[in-house]
């Protein structure tokens, strides 16, 4: 059960979300509540509606029906205010290649902040994200994908938002970087940050998430407590949900 505030609102809520792209029903009445300090992993095959759900939460897409709320703010009614409570790490973190990691962090953080962050604080964020000190001042075009991802995490950390959205955050990361990312996410959740992570990676999802939802054809098919299932069992549950739906569809 997700933790809610005094008004009964969870930091992140999706209620009866529906979205259709032409003949494709991307979301078919998605209901989801993620409480403060909770890390929710949204698992699903390609085309399940994970990115559509994230885009609605980011205010980039208008749902056909339903409501999305971030920190009790209706995203469709006031997307700018909703985004102020949000940090986002895209699947591919794209940065300015001619700036260093530190300069990129200062730039992206500066976009949403009225005052610039001190260098030492920025470096702290980079360290928390797992980027070694020697890389801080190197230009990003020399970075690996994992290093760029870490700068993306640092950007999200520096934002100090109550809600964090991640789209396939471990995609393309080496095991060590993925391990460090999971540690960072656990730390954030422990500090009360609400995390919603869309992923294919069952293993990492089970490691870091406090709840896992299996999304198929725009609908939440099943919710799993990762503490109560093993990796193999989670895989079976996931495949069964996907096959069941595909079987019904055919």
């Amino acid at each position: 059960m997700a933790a809610s505030d005094a008004g009964g609102h969870c930091p992140l809520e999706l209620i009866g979300l529906r979205k259709r792209f032409g003949p494709v029903q991307a979301l078919a009445g998605l209901d989801l509540r993620v409480g403060a300090g909770e890390c929710y992993a949204l698992l699903g095959p390609n085309g399940a509606g994970k990115t559509t759900a994230l885009n609605i939460l980011l205010g980039f897409l208008q749902p056909d029906a339903g409501t999305a709320r971030i920190a009790a703010v209706d995203v469709q009614a006031d997307p700018d205010r909703a985004r102020r409570n949000l940090a986002y790490i895209p699947e591919q973190v794209q940065l300015y290649p001619r700036l260093s990691g530190l300069e990129n962090l200062a730039y992206f953080h500066g976009l949403g902040a009225s005052e610039a962050m001190a260098d030492a604080q920025l470096r702290d964020c980079l360290r928390q994200a797992g980027l070694t000190d020697t890389a801080h001042d190197r230009r990003v075009h020399t970075y690996s994908k994992g290093m760029r991802q870490k700068v993306g995490i640092a950007i999200a950390l520096a934002r100090r938002a109550p809600v964090m959205l991640l789209d396939e955050p471990t995609s393309g990361l080496d095991p060590e970087a993925a391990f460090e990312l999971n540690n960072s996410l656990r730390d954030l959740a422990a500090r009360g940050v609400t995390i919603l992570m869309a992923t294919h990676d069952l293993f990492r999802a089970r490691e870091v998430a406090s709840r896992i939802g299996i999304l198929v054809a725009g609908r939440l098919q099943q919710e799993v407590d990762p503490a109560s299932v093993g990796g193999a069992e989670l895989e079976s549950l996931y495949l069964a949900a996907v096959r069941d739906l595909l079987g019904r569809a055919s």
Partner: peptide
């Protein structure tokens, strides 16, 4: 490059 979504989230408008 796909940088715009991150910019939009950070900046708002």
């Amino acid at each position: 490059s796909g940088m715009l979504p991150l910019l939009a989230v950070q900046r708002g408008q």
